[in-house]
Simulated scan of single mutants.
Amino acid sequence: MSKAEIQTTGFFTEREFTCWRERDYKNFYPCQVSKQEGNYVSLSLGDMSYRFDDTIAEDIARCILDADLVTAGKLYGYIPKPAMRESAFDSWYKMNSSGVWNYFGEGEFSYYRSGGVIIFMERVTDEDDTAEIMGIYTIDDVGIKLVLESSSYSFSKLDAVWLSNALMEALGEEPLDFLKTSTM
């Protein structure tokens, strides 16, 4: 399916992410968020593709923004506490040995592979389900990490806000943060 077809039948946006751990080398990877008909949101990071049930996509967006708020707090000397909400992710804050607060959001989801795409369906409730832990974390040097299946993606605060907003917009919702996230 071409980008033009995706844009006319649903939602599509893309951005080059700065690979946060290798930012000194100016390494980038593509990120695409799209939604066609159905109850799933597609996310491509580099050469991997994922699909999420709508509720999982929203929880990922909200957890990424929560992690981003913690990274902002590190820069300004406070930790904002996000509003309590029901989520498929368990989230918590923990201070490391250097006195720096970090954010952790984790959930265990059933998934399957179909044609090179990893599809996450719902939170695991049955021990017989094929399960994978998905996680969203802060990185000590003020970045965000998203762990999906066996892959890990690190990116900047601006990329985190963009991704959170793109996921919400794919769901037809308002962005969670209006911070300008255009490429500088």
Rank of each mutant, 00 (worst) to 15 (best):
T130G: 00
Q7I: 14
T130A: 12
D59G: 07
V33I: 11
C19G: 02
P175R: 09
T181M: 08
T13G: 05
N96P: 02
S150C: 06
D66M: 08
G107I: 03
M84Y: 12
K35C: 05
D141W: 10
F120C: 01
G143L: 05
C19Y: 07
D126T: 08
E16A: 13
G135E: 12
D59Q: 04
T71C: 13
G135H: 07
C63T: 10
Y50L: 03
N39L: 10
L65D: 08
E5A: 14
M121G: 09
I133A: 12
M1A: 12
A57F: 06
E22A: 11
D141E: 13
D68G: 10
A57N: 01
E173H: 15
D159E: 07
K35L: 05
E132T: 13
Y25Q: 12
L148M: 11
K145T: 07
D68E: 15
W20S: 04
T71K: 03
Y40H: 13
M48Q: 11
F28I: 05
E127H: 07
E86P: 01
E37C: 04
Y111G: 06
Y93W: 10
G105V: 04
S114P: 02
A72G: 00
N27I: 09
S49L: 01
P175D: 10
S49V: 05
M184F: 10
R21D: 03
T71W: 00
N165Y: 07
F52Q: 01
Y137Q: 02
V161P: 02
N102W: 04
T183L: 12
D53K: 12
L163G: 02
T125K: 14
G143R: 02
E16C: 05
R123K: 15
Y25M: 07
Y50G: 01
G99T: 06
C19R: 06
R23Y: 01
T9Y: 12
W92F: 15
S151P: 00
M121T: 15
A131K: 14
L148I: 07
